[in-house]
Amino acid sequence: MSTFLKNLIKNRVMLLMVLPGAIWFFFFSYLPLVGTVAAFKQYRFSREGFWASLMKSEWVGWDNFKFLFSTNDAWLITRNTLFYNIAIIFLGLVFAVGLAILLSELINKRLAKLYQTGMFLPYFLSWVIVGYFVFSFLSMDRGMLNQIIGWFGFEPIQWYSEAKYWPYILIFVALWKTIGYNSIVYLASILGIDKSLYEAAMIDGASKWQQIRNITLPLLSPIITIMTLLAVGRIFYADFGLFYQVPRDSGTLYSVTNVIDTYVYRGLKTSGEIGMSTAAGLYQSVVGFVLVIISNYVVRKIDKDSSLF
């Protein structure tokens, strides 16, 4: 019996545990890679099915990419995508780590679990529901925020027509929805830190801030680096629900809410250009992959133990 079969039989239990995840990745991550060839074709659907249509479609090379970046909105959607992702990555990191530290310092652990559950719940809400929540606050006629503004004698604001407010609104909503979830990772890492380190620091007279600065944050740096590297890999992806459902697809807000994902969706909905949509997705994936490789290389040069691979 070969060594490969021996190892297969020896690790059969672990391999069976991995099998559902492997099947999922094969069908939803690896098998669709074949369809990326549509980015280089003038795809035309026929009754013969997707694959037959893909093979018979005309090869156009880089034309789909040229069309994507030759539009007047190319710079706008790229700028918006990068701006929002950089802001959400940075602020999300700061607030998630801060929240995890605060939760770990609570003496009443039952109360800490209650807070943790309450901040974790928004992550499970769909963007459609979140969009209606936001609308209940920002509605021109019956929005709670406009009612509060009216009580102070000010004129109501047409939130869905004023683009200048929406960068702040979108960033706030994104942080509100994801911070609780992200803080769980950091909280788990904090709870895994050896308590004797804090006890020794307390004996030496270290304040709580000194303990956080000299023990907690340095020991959290590897997981912070890994989470940031993973986030950088999706820096050219925008959360479609956040930028489409929350602003309610308001045309007057496109200057600040239009990102690559929403632009491609609207283009696909109106023109049906599958090739251009595939080209945009391929562009996002390749750029994200390159950014992860470069970022990980820089991290390895600084601290090898903190790198992703």
Rank of each mutant, 00 (worst) to 15 (best):
S2G: 13
L5W: 14
L8E: 11
N11M: 02
N11Y: 14
M14E: 08
M14R: 12
L16A: 13
P20G: 01
F25E: 00
S29D: 00
P32T: 00
V37P: 03
F40I: 10
Q42W: 08
Y43D: 10
F45A: 13
E48Y: 01
F50T: 01
S53D: 00
L54H: 10
G61K: 09
D63N: 15
F65H: 11
F67Y: 15
L68N: 06
N72V: 11
N72F: 04
W75H: 02
T78Q: 03
T81H: 06
I86V: 15
A87R: 08
L93M: 12
A96M: 04
L102N: 06
L103R: 05
L103F: 12
E105Y: 10
L106V: 12
N108L: 12
A112N: 06
M119C: 10
M119Q: 08
F124A: 10
S126N: 12
I129S: 01
V130Y: 05
V130D: 03
M140Q: 06
M140Y: 14
D141N: 10
R142V: 11
G150V: 11
W151M: 05
G153E: 05
Y160V: 12
E162N: 10
K164N: 05
Y168T: 11
I169C: 03
T178F: 10
T178H: 07
G180S: 09
G180F: 07
S189D: 00
S189N: 07
Y198G: 03
E199Y: 05
W209D: 05
I215N: 04
P218T: 07
P218R: 04
I223G: 03
Y237W: 04
D239I: 14
F240P: 02
F240N: 00
V246P: 06
V246R: 08
V246S: 08
R248H: 10
S250E: 03
V256H: 02
T257C: 13
I260Y: 08
R266Y: 07
K269W: 01
S295M: 09
Y297G: 09
K301F: 03
K304S: 10
F309Y: 05
